[in-house]
Amino acid sequence: MEPRMYAYRCTACGKLFHPARAVCRRCGGREFEAVPLEGEGTLLTYTRVYALPEGYMKPWLGFGIVEFPNGLRVSGHMNTEDLTVGMKVRATVGVVKEGVGRDYYGFIFEKAG
């Protein structure tokens, strides 16, 4: 099955969150339903990190914070080199870290269009 990323919608008031949480920040609700979080968004800020933590074999990695049209903001990897604040990016899902016995999936953003 293709891995997907999700937003979590408060079943009481409809507010969306990512990642999942115990209590809704708007209404105090405690029940959420998972809805796919995908598509295009806007790059708010980014960095290229050269001193990566243990477990990465690359010399550097791009990271960014992206805002989706529904207002949710998430961190992810940037899979493109020419980055500018405000550019449109498209969310893909892939392996963001190779762990022992399991891989971690997360947002990997690409240039839109």
């Binding site: 933590p53 960014g64 992810g76 990897h77 963001v96």
Partner: peptide, 23 residues
């Protein structure tokens, strides 16, 4: 950091500081 939304990505304190600095 958040285990799923941040740490699992290889995000670090320098990474957040860099993104904060650009803003």
């Amino acid at each position: 950091l958040h285990p799923d939304a941040e740490y699992a990505y290889g995000l670090t304190l320098p990474a957040f500081a860099g993104m904060f600095t650009r803003l």
